[in-house]
């Protein structure tokens, strides 16, 4: 390292000479500095205002930090208590995974016709496309947790409401993604099939589907992955899955159970992640991701 610092000293010794020879490089750019300073000041000001408006006192923070340290130390080692509890938690985790899988696939199936319909090359009517897309945006704007609250009114508490909630909030996202996939499809294979004597059905089957299906499949897989995360919390409002138990154990301060469940979630998400990445590689090839 001393070699580098010797080099550094030599370079810095030359600085005055460099500055004299290239004044343009060393001259400060005041207008740019002013702009950056202004942007920074606004951002920092908002940040400070935000913190002030939340009435956060140092006493509260330091108290909380002490509490936090206590909680973290109590969390170790993770444990599930009795064996009966373990089975309850495992079943809840299974519910979470089931909700993610079924919800995503149901959402994808329901979104498919709407997605196709909202593609520019399928529905050339501007106003129809606009209305469809805005409704997708609205559905997407409502969080899965809120949909869960609504579905609980319909099918009662339990994982089924969770499935419906995930499906509903995914319809919006999937319809948008599918319509983009159809719009981005290359026309040439379709024309090629028609030119070599294929029927319209052949053109869709051998020209369009092979292009669109892998894209759709990989998106669905990706959403199963991300919905696993959403499905872990959907139980907080009573729509099935591990979230219910997690919320309950946090509220009753059973920290060892909490850390155990968090570990379970981490492992489950990692496994789903791995499977879905492998499948996506298999479907669309390594470089496309």
């Amino acid at each position: 390292m001393s070699g580098a610092s010797a080099l550094r000293r030599a370079m810095l010794a030359e600085r005055a000479g460099l500055e004299a020879r290239h004044p343009g490089i060393f001259r400060p750019d005041w207008s740019q500095r002013l702009w950056r300073g202004l942007v920074f000041a606004v951002l920092a000001g908002l940040f400070v205002y935000g913190l002030m408006s939340m009435e956060i006192s140092w006493a509260r923070i330091s108290n909380g930090m002490g509490e936090m340290a206590k909680v973290l130390s109590v969390m170790l080692p993770p444990s599930y208590g009795t064996e009966a509890k373990l089975w309850v938690y495992l079943k809840a985790l299974g519910e979470t995974l089931a909700i993610a899988l079924l919800g995503t696939l149901l959402g994808a199936m329901l979104a498919f016709p709407f997605g196709i319909l909202a593609a520019r090359n399928v529905l050339p009517v501007w106003i129809g496309r606009f209305l469809l897309r805005r409704s997708f945006d609205t559905i997407r704007g409502v969080d899965a947790l809120i949909w869960a609250l609504i579905w609980i009114n319909v099918v009662g508490l339990g994982p089924f409401a969770g499935v419906l909630a995930i499906a509903t909030s995914d319809i919006g996202s999937f319809a948008k993604l599918f319509s983009e996939a159809v719009e981005n499809a290359d026309k040439k294979p379709v024309e090629g099939v028609v030119a070599s004597g294929g029927s319209r059905l052949h053109a869709v089957r051998f020209g369009l589907i092979p292009q669109v299906l892998p894209v759709i499949a990989s998106q669905v897989l990706y959403y199963i992955e991300s919905n696993t995360r959403s499905a872990t919390i959907i139980g907080i409002v009573g729509a099935g899955g591990i979230g219910l138990h997690l919320a309950e154990q946090i509220r009753t301060l059973e920290w060892q159970h909490v850390s155990f469940m968090v570990l379970m979630i981490l492992v489950a998400v990692a496994v789903i992640d791995m499977i879905s990445t492998q499948l996506r590689f298999a479907i669309i090839g390594r470089r496309a991701i």
């Binding site: 299974g94 995974l97 089931a98 899988l101 079924l102 339990g158 994982p159 089924f160 099935g240």
Partner: peptide
């Protein structure tokens, strides 16, 4: 899917 159907009480 069948397993998930059963677990999620669809």
């Amino acid at each position: 899917l069948a397993v998930a159907w059963w677990i999620a009480e669809v």
